[in-house]
Structures are given as structure tokens and as C-alpha cells.
Design a protein around this nucleic acid. Structure first.
Lengths: 101, 101
DNA sequence: TACATTTGGACAAATATTGACCATATCAAA
DNA sequence: TTTGATATGGTCAATATTTGTCCAAATGTA
């Protein structure tokens, strides 16, 4: 299990690149990249796609990882029970049906 | 399975109260209450507690229902697979351990 | 030490969300 | 069908949240 930040940090280190280089490629400040790597900030979908392209990984997977991060942090923030996510899963299906039928 | 909005609407109708009365008690506009009932707006935690008190239901349960709603809508919004919520659940536990250990 | 890399904090800018207001729609009884 | 009450919808300013920049401080490394 890894977070979005850990993932992109790992990808960067596999290539032996400093934040400076990756940040330059992405056209952002190094301190911002550092924040992404520690999940202090969440990059836009567009930037995630750029990151995926840079490291040649599947962009959808990276987007999903960012989304699961975001939701996990919400649960932590609210100090809620993670089992609520099972309720949420059922609710998604319920709402889908409601929208269609 | 019910959404937060459906729940509070149901509670209101069980008491045969018009939105006008409930909104007055909560000190909000009726159109705002109508939006809560259709999940067009999300009430603050403070207001949820007021609502729980009014209908004499457990406020934590109502807060949880609002949270699962919010997450479910996020998944729908992103057109993501609801199974991602299982990943998120694991991630919560992972992050908890990371914060402690 | 000197230099590169990474992190932290404060704050303005950009985004997103909410609530108020008012018009319109729906409904029920007379 | 009119009347009056109830509920919904749309717009927009106010509020709240999130982001990105800037710069300082810390960490690492030769």
C-alpha cells in the first residue's frame, strides 16, 4: 500500500532525478513538488497526467491513486470509521440506479 | 439504503411537519432545507447536530450518513469505480499505522 | 565549509461551496 | 378554477477551502 505522494517520489528516485529536474519538466516550483510527494498538496488532474507521461505509467491508475488518497484523508480528518467506506460503496450503486431507473 | 437528504426528509414527514416549520426551528430558509433534502447542499456539522436534536436521533449516525453521501457523490462525480473505496479503506489503515508507528 | 537538495510556513490568488433572495412550480382544499 | 400553502429552481454575493508562490530554514553530501 502506498500513497500518491510516495508513488511519485518512488518513480522519481528510480530515475535518480532531483525534485529540481522533475519540477522543471512539470513547470512547477520544487517546493510544490515536495508537497505533492508528502501529500501536503493535491495536484490537478492535468498535472497528474503530465506526471504519468513523464514516468511512462498509466495515468488512470495514478488518478485513482490520488482519489483514494483524498478519500482516505477525509476519513482520517473526520476521525471516522473506515468501515463507512463500505456504506459509501453501497451508496454509490444505490445512487447510480436511482439516476438511471 | 438512503441518502442524508432522504433521511431527514423522512424524519420530517414522519412528524407531519412542513419544511417551513423545520426550517424555522433550524433558523434557515425553507429553500435551503429543501436543498438539504435533495442533497443539493451539504449542511454544516453544527446544523446536522441541531437536526439530530430536533428529531431525537443519534447525531453521530447522521454525521456519518452525510459523510458517506459526500464520498459517494465524489465517486460518481469522477466516474470512478466504487471498488476504489476498498482501496481507500486499506489506505486509511495504512496511514493510521504510519502516523502512530 | 560550500553547495545542492529538500522541507516548512505565511500569505495572496484561485476555486469551490454555501446561503439568501426571489421567482416559479406543485399541490390540496374549497 | 381560484386561493393559499408548500416545495423547488436559478442566480449571485459571501464564505470557506485549497492551491501555488515566495522565501527562509533544514538536511544532506562532497
Amino acid at each position: 500500500m502506498t500513497t500518491f505522494g510516495e508513488t511519485i517520489k518512488q518513480l522519481r528516485e528510480e530515475q535518480n532525478l532531483p525534485q529540481r529536474k522533475v519540477a522543471a519538466y512539470l513547470d512547477i516550483d520544487t517546493s510544490l513538488l515536495a508537497k505533492y510527494e508528502r501529500n501536503v498538496r493535491q495536484p490537478s488532474k492535468e498535472l497528474i497526467i503530465k506526471i504519468a507521461a513523464l514516468f511512462k505509467v498509466n495515468s488512470e491508475a495514478l488518478i485513482s491513486e490520488a482519489l483514494t488518497d483524498k478519500i482516505a484523508y477525509q476519513i482520517l480528518e473526520e476521525e471516522a470509521d473506515s468501515k463507512l467506506l463500505r456504506v459509501a460503496e453501497n451508496k454509490v450503486e444505490y445512487l447510480k440506479k436511482q439516476n438511471n431507473g
